[in-house]
Nucleic acid binder design. Structure first.
Length: 592
DNA sequence: AAGAGCACTTAGGATCTAACCC
DNA sequence: GGGTTAGATCCTAAGTGCTCTT
């Protein structure tokens, strides 16, 4: 490398940590472009050039073959294609609990009727009298048939679509698109107790679609005989395609993959903000503790809420429109009914019990001892309130974030979650990693550190359906391995005795072989045992979310380098692509 | 200040695929 | 080589937080 190139590269490093990705992509890109400068935009624009092929629409509806029949009140009934399609959506979900729920059925039936012809509407008046079983069986058979399809056929089709629609050109790079397929029509499945479950999610047509690309690009053509809603050239946003969804009226987007420059840079920035919080978190903590004593109610509420956000990694808790979504809360929207105060509980003083549904209707349950001042404040906030009143009636997320912004540039409630997650990982890794242990044991330590974060952030999962069985299977394997090991040890012993008597090369060799066998078995047994521990501890905990969204990847990369663990053991291929910037940047001494 | 709209990140479950076991 | 299982990937809902409007 020439001296000049070195300087440029170095400069690059100062500007962007992503230089290597940029370089790699540069060579990967098979289209030549005017070489405008790689730079961080300072005017809020996100790109200069953007070209893509537009979205892939859901396949059109294929009417049922005539031998697959729908029955109403025991009698065969031929449905119009429009209402038949909606009927198939219900039929496909027949095995799901959803279809037994009152709200789901009510919403579905209401929307279904809108699609029916007037004759159908007159006839079909009771969902209970509808028999979808032939439809359901037909789709089950179809999915079996698809499974039987050769791997090659499926793969080829997918690969072709990916190559054609899965990439775009943004500035100088060919980038992967995250979701280039438009969501197919179907029945809306909200999470938890959602008031809109079962409603018809309508089919998206070209005239619903807004295309975003640069003026000087070749913009995608709509399917023959159709038109886009709009083609715009807004480089202040990162999305390529958008449409408005009919259930909540919100906008959906097609955006780039996490491996893209634009997402990677944002991700890196997020962790840099969290690191800046690290530098001033002591000051902020001192300040909110001081504010617990404030004369002003709103300041006390703000300070207590912030304490929870910091200590318990709660989400901010924006207000939600009633009746539009499931009833879930975060910190600022917690209600009196969601907490219980115990002046004394299990030998601890000033215990607060939290019990509420958070994001995705995941239950947050926690009993925590708090400072006396916090406790007294909570009592005060709850005075003369009904159970369904807001605990923090003088606070909302925008008030809180405005305050945080004054404490540190770029500080918002969610930065605390990122900060506390990452700092916890770093501390736990330090505490749990044992230099003398082997790679397997170290990885268990890593997973335990990861788990501590997942617990902090309340990342739960439903225990896998086959959990008990798979634990049993593993235990059987462990038992078998133990037996093998004791056999091998016995053989080793006897071969040693044998060698002592014979004193020849051949029996010495046998001893060596047997020794190797014992070692191998010991190693295998240990791996199985570690696996069992890991799996048991992970039963209801999801590690993925924190790994992907909250843990500064440079901490993990540095840990791998420090202990000689291949990074592949921690991050799979997709994750390595997403965190390429960190893998490139972080040295073993990296400190969050 | 409240509310709506928009853009973006975060989330768990469903589905697919590859690895493993007999 | 066929069935099972674990892990990867896909899907899209559900959050956060900012800006613009009233």
């Amino acid at each position: 490398m020439s001296f000049c190139a070195l300087i440029i590269l170095d400069l690059y490093k100062a500007i962007s940590p992503l230089n290597v990705i940029i370089t790699i992509n540069y060579y990967d890109c098979d289209i030549t472009f005017p070489q405008w400068e790689e730079e961080r935009y300072t005017d809020g624009s996100k790109w200069k050039f953007l070209e893509h092929k537009g979205p892939v629409f859901a396949p059109p509806y294929e009417p049922l073959p005539s031998n697959v029949k729908f029955y109403y009140d025991g009698k065969h009934m031929k449905l119009s294609p429009e209402s038949e399609e909606v009927a198939t959506f219900f039929a496909k979900m027949l095995d799901h609990e959803y279809t037994t729920k009152d709200i789901f059925r009510k919403n579905f039936f209401k929307d279904w009727k809108k699609e029916m012809s007037s004759e159908e509407k007159a006839k079909i008046t009771d969902l209970k009298k509808c028999n979808f079983t032939e439809l359901s069986d037909y789709f089950k058979a179809q999915s079996e048939a698809r499974k039987a399809m050769t791997k090659e056929d499926k793969l080829e089709e997918n690969e072709r679509m990916l190559q054609e629609y899965g990439f775009c050109i943004m500035d100088n790079h060919r980038e992967r698109i995250a979701n280039f397929r438009i969501e197919p029509p179907g029945l809306f499945r909200g999470r938890g107790d959602h008031p809109k479950m079962g409603m018809l999610k309508r089919r998206i047509r070209p005239k619903d679609i807004i295309i975003n690309c640069s003026k000087d690009s070749k913009h995608p053509e709509p399917p023959p005989g159709t038109k886009w809603k709009e083609v715009r050239h807004d480089n202040k946003v990162t999305w390529l395609v958008s449409w408005t969804e009919n259930i909540q009226g919100s906008i959906k987007y097609i955006m780039l993959n996490p491996s893209s420059r634009i997402k990677g840079e944002k991700d890196w920035q997020k962790y840099e903000t969290a690191r800046r919080l690290k530098k001033c978190v002591d000051r902020i903590r001192t300040q909110y503790r001081e504010d617990w004593k404030s004369k002003e109610m709103r300041i006390r509420q703000r300070a207590v809420a912030l304490y929870f956000i910091d200590k318990l990694a709660l989400r901010a808790g924006n207000e939600k429109e009633e009746g539009e979504t499931a009833d879930t809360v975060g910190c600022c929207s917690v209600r009196v009914e969601h907490i219980k105060l115990y002046p004394e509980n299990d030998g601890q003083e000033f215990v607060v019990e939290f019990d509420f549904l958070g994001k995705d209707s995941i239950r947050y349950y926690n009993k925590v001892p708090v400072e006396k001042r916090v406790f007294k404040n909570l009592q005060l906030f709850m005075e003369n309130k009904e159970p369904d009143d807001d605990l923090f009636d003088r606070l909302n997320t925008s008030v809180l974030n405005k305050h945080l912004q004054e404490l540190m540039d770029g500080l918002t409630a969610k930065v605390f979650r990122t900060y506390n997650a990452s700092i916890t990982l770093q501390q736990q890794l330090k505490a749990l990693t044992n230099a003398d242990e082997n790679v397997t044991a170290k990885i268990l330590s890593y997973n335990r550190a990861n788990r501590a974060v997942a617990i902090l952030c309340n990342h739960q999962r439903a225990p896998p359906k086959t959990f008990e069985k798979s634990m049993q299977n593993l235990q059987t394997k462990i038992d078998a391995k133990r037996d093998q090991l004791s056999d091998a040890k016995r053989e080793l012993k006897s071969s040693k005795a044998d060698a002592k008597v014979r004193r020849d090369e051949r029996s010495k060799k046998t001893v060596e072989t047997k020794k190797k066998a014992v070692e191998r078995l010991e190693d295998q047994l240990m791996k199985l045992e570690v696996q069992a521990t890991d799996r048991e501890e992970n039963k209801q905990i999801a590690l993925g979310t924190s790994k992907l969204n909250y843990l500064d990847p440079r901490i993990s990369v540095a840990w791998c380098k420090k202990w000689g663990i291949p990074v592949e053991k921690i991050y799979n291929k997709t994750q390595r692509e997403k965190f390429a910037w960190a893998i490139d940047m972080a040295e073993e001494d990296y400190e969050f």
